[in-house]
Design a protein around this nucleic acid. Structure first.
Lengths: 239, 239
DNA sequence: CATAACCAAGTTGCCTGACAAGATGGCAAC
DNA sequence: GTTGCCATCTTGTCAGGCAACTTGGTTATG
């Protein structure tokens, strides 16, 4: 709750005010549809200037929590209107939480793979095959193959034809990789033995998607992600 | 693209500038770690005042896309540092997209139910049982039972002990319910026959969680959500 | 010559004051 | 009683300025 992670960047006044207002709205202090106090009034009550209030309210507007009409005021949006899902970065402090995130990623990718098997077109299959070949080429060249790995998973979620799966998957994937990259000792390198195992698992997923075997695809994906998580675990600090 | 749905609220200058900068960062116009132009410079180049620039940059900071150091400047964050997943409200225009959203919700809840079966404590089971009884009471009283329904699902995701599942699930659930509530004809009312079916399906989920039957829990959840989606479909306009 | 202290310029964080545009409520005229 | 108008409030935007902080070069010192 208090310990600063990297840099204790002083929270700006707009930060704390936005958080305060967000909290007040979440706790029902301001009800949906209710008009919240004018900027001037908020400025005086919280002891800050109006631009700061504007900035704070601007963030709430950006997040879809309030809507404002010029000349009238700012109003609390209906409870389901929020348009962002925020992963609080401050939460990333221990192994427990990155594992929770990976768990979520696994859930998404498993379902995505299952859907991909049901819906893949011939073009999707071709794209998937190309990524598989690209990965093989990376192995033979001795490259890291990380980009090809990412591209393969991206091709899967694209085959779902569901934009939310695509967006959430890439978001979580980036987030997890970012965490791993910053947390692990830089000396550790991916081993080619690992890469060949990854390639085998990818091929299993590919075959299931090719055969439109939804259950098989889910199982292959779950197996792959489980093993990937184990491989990643060696890069993470012990709890 | 043009027809205003409710109110055609003119996008503020800070809105367009923030969107513009976000786009520039996403497209690699500014690379991670790079220092972006000073506020004064941005203000002159885009023809707006400095407070507007501050507000726009403030949003990017809030979303984790940039970090600023006083006296030094604002820098583009590393690509995986973004802390928000945004579901663009503008996308919700047709049935196709709400169905995609429901699909995502189903994926989350199915996995959550599976995890809940693996991890539920005795307390979780007791809480789940209470929600089941509350739902039964609502049926007998003739209430809508919506709140009890939500509470039951919430109890499931809480049993996962994974905060991301909890947050994402409640977020998506609210979002979907909000959409349904605004899209459906208000005359339509839930039928008690539906409620009893829901209660049966909930009981199946409960039993599987009680028995720590992960696979059974997933199947029960999938079946329940599939039927729930069908029941909801009658409230939605045809494509 | 190398190193350390120092200072000036640039940048962000924040404030005050002001004006324009749109909305709202009451007052006056009919 | 109804209608039209205007004073007032609120948001949107701008201008200018000061304090705190970082940075890089310059100068003084060992």
């Amino acid at each position: 709750m208090s310990a600063p992670s990297h840099l204790d960047r002083a929270p700006s006044l707009a930060d704390v005010l936005a958080q305060r207002l967000e909290q007040d709205i979440a706790q029902g202090h301001y009800m949906p549809g209710e008009k919240l106090p004018s900027e001037q009034q908020l400025a005086t009550t919280y002891g800050v200037s109006r631009p700061i209030v504007r900035e704070a309210i601007g963030r709430l507007k950006h997040d879809g929590l309030v809507t404002s009409r010029q000349g009238s005021g700012a109003f609390v949006a209906e409870s389901g209107a929020a348009s962002v899902f925020r992963l609080d970065v401050a939460n990333f402090k221990d192994r427990q939480e990155i594992e929770s995130l990976i768990e979520l990623l696994m859930a998404i990718e498993s379902s995505a793979t299952e859907l991909a098997a049901q819906r893949r077109t011939e073009q999707d299959l071709i794209a998937l095959g190309h990524q598989l070949e690209a990965m093989q080429g990376a192995i033979e060249r001795g490259d890291s193959g990380v980009d090809e790995d990412v591209a393969f998973h991206r091709a899967i979620v694209e085959a779902t034809k569901n934009p939310f799966f695509m967006d959430l998957s890439t978001f979580l994937d980036r987030r997890v990789r970012h965490f791993i990259r910053t947390a692990r000792a830089n000396t550790a390198k991916l081993q080619t033995g690992h890469m060949m195992a990854v390639q085998d698992e990818h091929r299993n997923i590919f075959n299931a998607i090719r055969d439109k075997d939804a259950q098989g695809a889910r199982h292959a994906a779950e197996s792959h992600l489980k093993k990937a998580a184990q491989r990643l675990a060696i890069y993470m600090k012990p709890v």
